[in-house]
């Protein structure tokens, strides 16, 4: 069948249109992802501009890590979410080690840590991590409330119990095997404990590993023969904290330095905090947040500044 010139022109035009659209669309597709990101950041910028005027925050924060820091952050988060209904914060534990590795890998926004990144040894430190100190804490040696054999220990005695030299309560006038409990290797509480109490030796291999402050507390609270260590923020009437060299691990004694064990607590971000992360960190550092620190049984920063 032969075509008239009109038909041919018409057909050619249609072909051209298809070609042009096709090329354009392909080009657009490859730029689609970057377009999306551009749109995202535009919205973010708009948000922050608006935020300067309306103070309205929106977003999602994941925070995880040290169980020592956890009670503080949980309470702060609840309050923060009340004041900023557009924000959803999810807080979980996992230990300081988990907090550090998770924020470094980008799984969470903010890592909680009772390990000091600058002074503690970490084999491969991530240079992008930025810690902010938010409170202070201490570590106490705890036993079951009915344990009448010990009340006051020296540093040496603590070390000898935990390294397995002293194995029986009979050493203190009681009876039965001493059940030594410790924390998982990534724990910041463990690191603090070892730094102050295990100066010359390692914790015995026979010690049972617990994976959080909460678990440690529950375990000691149910095992009359047990001994362990706990962040002072967790101490309540279910466990009995021991005096060390005659000094009780009270907040007052820690403040004055009579109870010598002391450590900082941190919130860590990867790189500079985003707007919403910064807002939350500011909240924790604010007088509201520091009041929560004190309420939870920890030590506010200003006491040591």
């Amino acid at each position: 069948m032969s075509w008239s010139s009109l038909q041919k022109t018409f057909f050619a035009l249609i072909l051209l249109a298809i070609l042009v659209l096709g090329v354009h669309n392909t080009w657009t597709m490859s730029n689609l992802t970057s377009t999306v990101y551009t749109m995202q950041s535009t919205i973010d910028n708009l948000n922050s501009m608006l935020g300067n005027y309306t103070q309205r925050l929106e977003g999602y924060l994941t925070i995880a890590g040290s169980t020592t820091v956890l009670p503080i952050i949980q309470t702060c988060a609840n309050l923060f979410m009340q004041e900023n209904p557009g924000v959803v914060i999810s807080v979980s534990g996992g230990g300081s080690g988990h907090g550090i590795s998770a924020v470094s890998a980008g799984y969470i926004n903010i890592g909680m840590s009772s390990k000091n990144l600058t002074t503690e040894q970490i084999t491969d430190p991530d240079p992008d991590l930025q810690p902010v100190a938010i409170a202070l804490d201490s570590v106490a040696i705890i036993v079951h409330p009915t344990n009448g054999f010990v009340d006051d220990l020296t540093l040496e005695e603590v070390e000898m119990i935990f390294n397995g030299t002293i194995t029986d309560w009979s050493h203190f006038g009681g009876s039965g095997e001493i059940h030594v409990y410790t924390r998982e290797a990534g724990s910041g509480t463990l690191e603090c404990f070892e730094k102050f109490f295990m100066k010359h030796s390692d914790i015995t291999g026979a010690a049972s590993e617990k994976t959080s402050n909460g678990e440690m507390k529950a375990t000691i609270a149910s095992d009359p023969a047990g001994i362990g260590f706990l962040s002072v923020g967790y101490i309540d009437e279910t466990v009995n904290p021991l005096k060390i060299d005659g000094v009780e691990p009270t907040v007052a004694n820690i403040k004055t330095g009579a109870y010598k064990i002391k450590r900082w607590l941190f919130l860590i971000t990867k790189g500079p905090p985003t707007k919403i992360e910064q807002a939350f960190i500011d909240f924790v550092l604010s007088s509201q947040g520091q009041e929560i620190v004190e309420q939870q049984g920890y030590l506010p920063l200003e006491w040591f500044q």
Binding site: G94, G95, S96, G97, H98, S101, I122, T123, E184, G186
Partner: peptide
């Protein structure tokens, strides 16, 4: 279970 949460990657 006890170690995974804090283990450094890679090591």
């Amino acid at each position: 279970l006890l170690d995974w949460s804090y283990v450094e990657i890679p090591s």
